Simulated scan of single mutants.
Amino acid sequence: MNRYLPVARQHFLAALASTSVVVKSICAAVLLLYLLSWAVDTVYVLGVTPGYLFPPNFWIWTLVTHAVVEQHFVDVAVSVGTVIAAGRLLEPLWGALELLIFFAVVNVSVGLLAGFSYLLTYVATFNLDYLFAVRVHGMLGFLGGVLVALKQTMGDLTVLRVPQVRLKVAPMLVLLALAVLRLTTLLESTAPLAAYGYGVLSGWVYLRFYQKHSRGRGDMSDHFAFASFFPEILQPVVGLVAGLVHSVLVKIKVCRKMVKRYDVGAPSSITISLPGTDPQDAERRRQLALKALNERLKRVEDQSAWPSMEDEEDEDEDEVRTDVPLLSGREATSPAGGASSSKSPAGQESSIISFEDAPSNS
């Protein structure tokens, strides 16, 4: 295994070098705070503790710092890998500033939602451990948001071939894996599960309703609906419940009703609003169609590269013809000016008649 470490380090440094200063800064903060955790309890000071987040303590800075705090090397590797993956896959599409906004929105939302949920749990159970023994920290919340963003941009990408697993089901598969780990007590706390779940939720809400882009705000395409995160058998029920919740949020002015628009490429600049269509969904289908067309054209070119048998036969006939010497009229005539006989390579006589010196009838 030691022989693979230099190769892995080389790939890691190459991937890190190709990212922006935002990604490099976040990775540096994670590594620096991990080294600092050997001397100071960074999770207590910089992680989200529900009892200290709300008044009278109000440790508001932990909403920003909890994501870059780790205590174990494996967690550091997961955090750095998540940030680099976001920089390589999402930053070229969004830009460094939008990636930083997404990072801040998801992590602040995870801290608030997790702290508030543990506060409600304390109200229901009166157990002080939910207020002061729980520490929410790490990049699992941002990992959930990144997987949601990758589902939006490249959901049809195949992650595993046997069994076939596509990227669009990755957010819920990771959530299911964390739930199983918690049920088997391999996870000591519910904080990682809660952080990842709230990361998925906050990432989807931001990308669905609030992210600004050239076509407006949000993504109302059908393939990015909330029901698409669940198995097909549950999608009708989840879609109905999600529609009711969204209608309530629209009425209380938390969300605004989105209009789906489809831009028709025509000589005149006309924008037609059609139900159930979206430019991002159409663009995704267009890219898939172009990819399939390019693959078919490549296969046709590979097949046409083989020479045909007819061309080979024509080339052989041309070679035979060039091997037979051509005689001019002078060389073919006899001294008497009549016919002369010449032997072919096969030994047969052939008569060649020349009328060049024949007397004309006057």
Rank of each mutant, 00 (worst) to 15 (best):
residue 310 E to R: 11
residue 265 G to C: 00
residue 298 K to W: 12
residue 321 R to S: 11
residue 254 V to H: 11
residue 278 D to A: 06
residue 37 S to Y: 01
residue 15 A to H: 11
residue 233 I to A: 15
residue 344 S to T: 15
residue 142 F to G: 13
residue 206 Y to H: 14
residue 167 L to R: 06
residue 277 T to Y: 11
residue 6 P to K: 00
residue 93 L to H: 04
residue 210 Y to L: 14
residue 41 D to Y: 00
residue 93 L to N: 04
residue 172 M to I: 08
residue 219 D to F: 13
residue 246 H to C: 13
residue 67 A to H: 10
residue 104 A to T: 14
residue 171 P to S: 06
residue 287 Q to K: 07
residue 3 R to C: 10
residue 296 R to N: 11
residue 136 V to A: 02
residue 41 D to A: 08
residue 248 V to P: 00
residue 180 V to Y: 07
residue 42 T to W: 00
residue 145 G to P: 06
residue 190 T to A: 15
residue 69 V to K: 12
residue 95 G to S: 02
residue 23 V to R: 12
residue 302 D to M: 11
residue 48 V to Q: 04
residue 56 P to Y: 00
residue 242 A to V: 00
residue 67 A to I: 08
residue 171 P to N: 07
residue 157 L to M: 14
residue 301 E to F: 12
residue 60 I to V: 15
residue 26 I to L: 13
residue 45 V to I: 12
residue 246 H to I: 14
residue 126 F to M: 14
residue 78 V to H: 01
residue 349 E to M: 02
residue 66 H to M: 09
residue 163 P to G: 05
residue 321 R to M: 10
residue 97 L to Y: 08
residue 239 G to F: 10
residue 57 N to W: 09
residue 82 T to C: 13
residue 70 E to P: 06
residue 262 Y to H: 08
residue 249 L to H: 11
residue 358 A to C: 03
residue 72 H to M: 02
residue 215 R to E: 15
residue 137 H to M: 04
residue 29 A to D: 07
residue 143 L to K: 05
residue 310 E to F: 02
residue 283 E to D: 13
residue 148 V to D: 09
residue 167 L to C: 04
residue 238 V to Y: 03
residue 84 I to T: 06
residue 218 G to K: 07
residue 168 K to P: 00
residue 48 V to D: 06
residue 38 W to N: 15
residue 164 Q to R: 15
residue 148 V to E: 07
residue 217 R to T: 10
residue 99 L to W: 03
residue 332 A to L: 07
residue 64 V to C: 04
residue 88 R to Y: 03
residue 287 Q to L: 08
residue 67 A to C: 12
residue 225 A to I: 01
residue 122 Y to P: 08
residue 35 L to I: 05
residue 69 V to A: 15
residue 5 L to P: 01
residue 129 D to H: 03
residue 229 F to P: 05
residue 85 A to V: 14
residue 173 L to Q: 05
residue 138 G to W: 01
residue 42 T to D: 00
residue 89 L to T: 07
residue 198 Y to A: 06
residue 20 S to H: 07
residue 257 K to S: 08
residue 5 L to T: 06
residue 296 R to M: 10
residue 189 S to Q: 13
residue 218 G to F: 02
residue 214 S to I: 13
residue 26 I to E: 00
residue 23 V to M: 08
residue 92 P to D: 04
residue 310 E to P: 00
residue 77 A to G: 02
residue 229 F to H: 09
